[in-house]
């Protein structure tokens, strides 16, 4: 169990081989029926490989839009996004191709309810043709066992608790050995106790796999507890307003939550976010 971790104590993320994201001057204008909505405005952000970068901002500010652009779910209007020096989208290629190197974990979860947990986890390698069904199932079973999910393989997602579902979903992503995990408020619907368990589980997975994590949230505790850095975004159009370094060393555990430094960072973040939240509230933004 615990012995698998080398105890590294550092505030900066470890240098991972891949997963560096460079977002440059990205603009996204939605154009429904000619009424232009500028969701992202000249946004630039660089995320080094292996970093946990938390994106915080008011509802409807354009966080999901940015994530979708990285994942390749829709086009960008201008600017460019690079992953490890390779252009995902940019001039001449408005939409990135979705692919197994950047996997999204969705707000409401997206395990296929019609597949068993095992089939869900094995899905990636099977459709990519990288493994036979049997190999994929064997590997999936092993990975689920590692994550403490043994016994749920043959359940359908509808039969297990929402916390367990999130864990299965993360395992499904890791099956593909991605360089980046994109989280879109994955724990929003969970109660705070389950959430705290999920946070530790996520960190544990992170310490083992060292992927880059792009994590949207508006729970500030979550942001500070998990992140190396926090990018506070402005109200729509979305752009980093302030970037905070969380100089609490990793690996972290729950004692961090009560530390003095945590409180200080909280104050700092809250100050930046609150201003934007008021602006957003006055604009009457709804959830995107």
């Amino acid at each position: 169990m615990a012995s698998t971790f080398a105890v590294e104590t550092r505030t900066r993320p470890p240098a991972a081989a891949r997963g560096a994201i460079r977002i440059e001057d990205v603009v996204k204008i939605y154009d429904p029926d000619g009424a232009a909505v500028m969701a992202v405005d000249h946004c630039s952000l660089e995320i080094p490989a292996g970093e946990i970068c938390m994106i915080v901002g008011p509802s409807g500010c354009g966080k999901t839009t940015l994530l979708n652009a990285i994942a390749g779910f829709h086009t960008i209007t201008s600017g460019s996004i690079h992953l490890d020096g390779e252009m995902l989208c940019g001039p001449g290629k408005p939409k990135a191709d979705p692919g197994a190197d950047r996997i999204v974990v969705f707000q409401n979860g997206a395990l296929f309810p019609w597949k068993t947990n095992l089939e869900n986890v094995a899905f990636g390698p099977v459709v990519q043709g990288k493994m036979s069904k049997k190999e994929a199932h064997d590997k999936a079973r092993a990975m689920m066992a590692d994550a403490g999910l043994s016994g749920t393989e043959h359940n359908y997602p509808g039969e297990i608790s929402s916390g367990v579902r999130r864990r299965v979903e993360i395992v499904r992503a890791l099956m593909n050995d991605p360089s980046v995990l994109l989280f879109d408020e994955p724990y929003r619907a969970l109660d705070s106790l389950t959430k705290s368990v999920m946070h530790e589980a996520l960190l544990e997975i992170y310490y083992r796999n060292k992927v880059t994590i792009f994590f949207i949230t508006h729970d500030l505790d979550e942001a500070i507890f998990l992140g190396h850095r926090i990018a506070v975004m402005t109200t729509r159009p979305c752009r980093p307003k302030k970037i905070l370094e969380v100089d609490i060393p990793h690996p972290r555990d729950y004692s961090v939550l009560t530390s003095k430094r945590f409180r200080e960072l909280m104050d700092e973040t809250l100050g930046a976010v609150h201003e934007e939240a008021i602006k957003a509230f006055e604009l009457g933004e709804k959830e995107g």
Partner: peptide
Amino acid sequence: DESYTRAAYCLGANKWQVFGHVIVP
């Protein structure tokens, strides 16, 4: 839900695999 099709694309499915594994079921 759109996230199902998106998740499938993310996991490397092509258009017809999405059709078979997500749209139909």
